[in-house]
Nucleic acid binder design. Sequence first.
DNA 1: AGTGGACTTTCCACTCACCGGAAGGCCATC
DNA 2: GATGGCCTTCCGGTGAGTGGAAAGTCCACT
Lengths: 259, 259
Amino acid sequence: MTTPKSVAGRLFTLLSVFSEQRPSANLSELSRSAGLALSTTHRLVNELVEWGALDRDDEGRYHVGLRLFELAALTPGSLGLRERALPFLEDLYEVTHENVQLAVRDGLEAVYVERISAHNAVNVVTRIGSRLPVHATGVGLAMLAHAPPDVQELALHSPMRTFTPKTICTPSALREKLARVRREGYAVSDGQIELITLSVAAPIRGPDDGVVAAVSIVVPNEGTDVASLVPAVRAAARGISRALRAPSAVRSPSRGTPT
Amino acid sequence: MTTPKSVAGRLFTLLSVFSEQRPSANLSELSRSAGLALSTTHRLVNELVEWGALDRDDEGRYHVGLRLFELAALTPGSLGLRERALPFLEDLYEVTHENVQLAVRDGLEAVYVERISAHNAVNVVTRIGSRLPVHATGVGLAMLAHAPPDVQELALHSPMRTFTPKTICTPSALREKLARVRREGYAVSDGQIELITLSVAAPIRGPDDGVVAAVSIVVPNEGTDVASLVPAVRAAARGISRALRAPSAVRSPSRGTPT
DNA sequence: AGTGGACTTTCCACTCACCGGAAGGCCATC
DNA sequence: GATGGCCTTCCGGTGAGTGGAAAGTCCACT
């Protein structure tokens, strides 16, 4: 990331310095990491602070500010979806007491927008706001399986990062998996991110019946009866789809072709 | 909001156009609302889109982008606090099945960072990311009561917005209320935002024992036994404080001077 | 088909906001 | 008191950013 010529670009590189690994930084760190002159950094960062995009604590370290948080709450995945999905996620949690997650797709990545976790549930790597490749996660597969053809093609032909020996990493395996997800109406990701965990995910449809998100439940992959989780997850997904006025979910609460 | 002279300022005014009322906008709307020339808006917005701060849908409308969401997840109130607080909020929810909220303070406003709501719980005005004045909300009062003296002074002498006839709006009433909150260890906001709801809130302390957040439960103010909610809310607040390694909470889980 | 209107995109010459080197201040540690 | 790390402020040259204008696109209405 060489110094961009536009002011906007510079601001972005500054903001991009912050990450899960480095949630705060002081001025010099910012200046170095962003590759900007100290005085420039100083001026820009001051503007960011003034607006509320960044906060500065008493030790002079900068953090991401609440103003950004406020703005981010307006993300499409947030405003409508999250609000409506939460009660259903709660239900799912209450029945299972396992980690429950809600994600949307951004390109070839799943972005987690909501998560419910218990004290003693299995630990998972994801946090709200974090991203994982679609091919390796339950929610990702559920969304990819119903994504537009061009996205699927792109996914099939992009290099696939592997996390464990179980991670899907060939086009043919992925193609097969997606077909299965479509056939069965849910996705299971077994040990693809961490060997010890497994997730069951189902797609959530929006007003135009396209898949806009996915819900999943993450459990230890030993001693868990996967089959018993599937109906609960699918029901939650369907409930959320209905709350979003998805035609296919709004119709009949009877059997039929669900999801 | 007259046109600021700096590029950064212009970017901020553009972003500020988005709100709960207007979560999306097209180019001209942005240009008009921000008071910027169309061509300028066009260029800046393009940069924002390129970075992911904004998204453009097929109809040409702009939305807040996932990149901002990702960044916002790094907010101090988010990263540590939220993650650790969630399980306790879950507990609280599970016991009561009412709306549970987590907020931090930004100046004289409470910013809601997490919320759990049930299908049939009483509807509340707040959403994640929204703000309300400290003087009018349970969480706000709980935080203000333990805020630095200068903040309290500022709050006492600032004009107080009223939402209902019950909203606290005089310095003396506020001062009294704050004293009571400190004495009792929790805050009740009865009909201050909406006449039909009531909230019980308790302060959450961080590693340096300062109050960093507050948790509350929102219920209809008729037919609810407030007294029975208090212990649950305080316990949750204490649990979260302990998870944050607050000295006063980490000590003994016994009686003593709690919260 | 023709017209009008609203929105978007591209172009370009002027100019002013931005850049970064330099210098100075503060506070540690050696 | 010297050294090195930070942060802050200043200032002159210059190129990035600006906004008017014109052209392109897509409707809806007649």
